[in-house]
Nucleic acid binder design. Structure first.
Lengths: 115, 115
DNA sequence: CAGCATCCTACCGGATACTG
DNA sequence: CAGTATCCGGTAGGATGCTG
């Protein structure tokens, strides 16, 4: 895991930077959001839910989220393969913070529109 | 203003993505945090507070934050030039959300360490 | 079905030097 | 003091094709 190296400097006095590195990136939030709404999704369901994402990006993002303990991956040993993804408890803990942020985002987004 | 173009897709159902684009980037949070702690800072004070940042990055980040209405820029017309930066009300509104996120960041950061 | 390997490219962030 | 202008490299993100 080196995703956070770039942003890791002594100014992340708080752990904010760490959090942002975990949920940052182009597809992490859409993934998290989809899992939040649907609870459990299979790989291809996720891919369809997040239209526009490629296998590469989905796999990569999922793996990183999983490594951070935010997403849970359950693999069934059968043919054809079946893998289900869901939020872990830590992942769910994140949601309120995200909602707060989203609320603020909406607030300033609308102000910026009026300019 | 094009910073958010890249992340702007129809999956930012919530306004989260927007918020992250405003606050994302390498130096925005350190700047915001410094302004939060010190209330008002001049350009060079900011630069010193955020050791490692270059003029380019500082100027650029400040301008974007200002354009988003998060940072207030007050310029005194005198020689030598004096410019003071501070958080706007919208900027201050952001702080609680950031703190929530930071708290979560700390939580999972410590879990990840134990792995 | 679920995912990996490769290759490629745009752009973010940085170093350096200059200015009103 | 408070910035701009230019140039540049690394890396996040993407296109495409293959596999157990």
């Amino acid at each position: 895991m080196k995703a956070e190296s770039k942003y890791q400097n002594k100014y992340d006095s708080c752990n904010l930077t760490y959090a942002l590195n975990v949920v940052g990136g182009k597809w992490r939030l859409p993934i998290l959001w989809a899992l939040y709404k649907h609870d459990i999704l299979r790989y291809n369901e996720l891919k369809r839910a997040i239209e526009g994402i490629t296998n590469m990006m989905l796999t990569q993002s999922l793996k990183e989220l999983e490594n951070h303990g935010i997403v849970h991956r359950k693999q069934y040993m059968e043919i054809p393969p079946r893998v289900e993804y869901s939020l872990t408890e830590d992942g769910k803990d994140l949601i309120p913070a995200l909602i707060a942020l989203a609320k603020w985002g909406k607030q300033i987004k609308e102000k910026n529109k009026r300019d």
